[in-house]
Nucleic acid binder design. Structure first.
Length: 306
DNA sequence: AAGACGAAAGTGGTTGA
DNA sequence: TCAACAACTTTCGTCTT
């Protein structure tokens, strides 16, 4: 797995960090995110249950859910799968099979359109291929279960993408999804919750740390500040300042404080815009951070030194 | 003049009876 | 199903640099 890029185009630094899971290469010297869309070296699928496992584990040519006819139309309820199912799963499959027989052409048409849309949004957001795959799979499952009925195709696509991002710890905010897909934020949230609940997809609360590199890069903060922010974030988590709070707000506040400490001051407004929260939220988090951790000292010291 | 701060009122979502 | 509730936003006035 070679690193194709040897030097940072921004600063010429050679200190490049490869983040496999997020599909990112980050320059350690200037913090520039060089490549976000690179191939993912890890396992790019998740297995919900054993028949999924059989389908997804593979030797030989890869199959992909981003192609509309994969997993649909031709092979639901084929012999091999049925033997491995029992009870509820078996019934479900019989049901699906009958259902699918009737409307398979409609589903195919739907999928073809939806996956085109999915690819469009995904590339707009520069999401790793692995996330796109996951989203495609979620969407496929959703269609098979008839969850799209009564909802716009686009919103389900957006919801699936959002869920896929979360599962792969490459979180995008609802705002970003909304901008990319042109769907109302609330609508995405709604379908996202609905789909994940119906499909029994368990999503961990997103970790604020995952937002840091992207925000830091967008704010052109030094890698030093970036790691400082992560440090602060970890301290905050230990002090249980993070539970129940919006992860983006916490990430933003940590960055803001880190920037202060490192004399790279950004205004609250700037940070707030990038993170998609308001200044007020940053202030509140910021206040809590100062109070619970003794960061005050660190900032004071800097002021005196300066 | 711009940024930081905080109070007050409003919004959408979750929770628990 | 409804009301209480927490988190977050919007708006606005005041203080600081």
């Amino acid at each position: 797995m070679a690193n194709y890029i040897k030097k940072c185009p921004e600063c010429g630094g050679i200190n490049l960090i490869l983040n496999k899971e997020k599909g990112e290469i980050i320059c350690k010297d200037c913090g520039l995110v060089i490549e976000e869309k690179m191939i993912d070296f890890g396992q790019e699928w998740r297995e919900f249950d054993h028949d999924q496992a059989d389908k997804m584990r593979r030797t030989g040519a890869p199959m992909t859910y981003t192609k509309f006819d994969r997993g649909l139309g031709t092979d639901i309820g084929q012999k091999g799968d049925l033997y491995k199912l029992e009870g509820k799963g078996r019934n479900k499959y019989f049901r699906l099979r009958k259902w699918q027989y009737r409307v398979s052409t409609a589903i195919e048409r739907n999928l073809k359109l939806a996956l085109a849309e999915l690819r469009r949004v995904s590339s707009y957001l520069k999401l790793p291929k692995s996330v796109e795959e996951e989203a495609a799979r979620i969407y496929t499952l959703a269609v098979q279960r008839g969850l799209v009925r009564g909802r716009s195709m686009e919103s389900v696509v957006a919801g699936a993408l959002y869920a896929a991002c979360r599962r792969h710890e490459v979180p995008r905010t609802l705002d970003e999804l909304s901008e990319a897909s042109g769907i109302d934020k609330k609508e995405i949230g709604r379908t996202y919750r609905f789909v994940t609940r119906e499909l029994g997809i368990r999503i961990l609360p997103s970790n604020p740390v995952d937002y840091i590199p992207r925000f830091a890069s967008a704010l052109k903060l030094s890698p030093d500040t970036q790691s400082k922010a992560v440090e602060i974030l970890e301290m905050a988590q230990k002090s249980e300042l993070t539970s129940g709070r919006g992860p983006t707000g916490i990430a933003a506040a940590s960055l803001y404080v880190a920037a202060l400490i490192n004399n790279e001051k950004k205004t609250q407004r700037e940070v707030a815009d990038i993170a998609g929260v308001t200044e007020v939220t940053i202030r509140n988090r910021y206040k809590e951070l100062l109070k619970k951790l003794n960061l005050k000292d660190q900032i004071k010291k800097k002021e005196i030194a300066a």
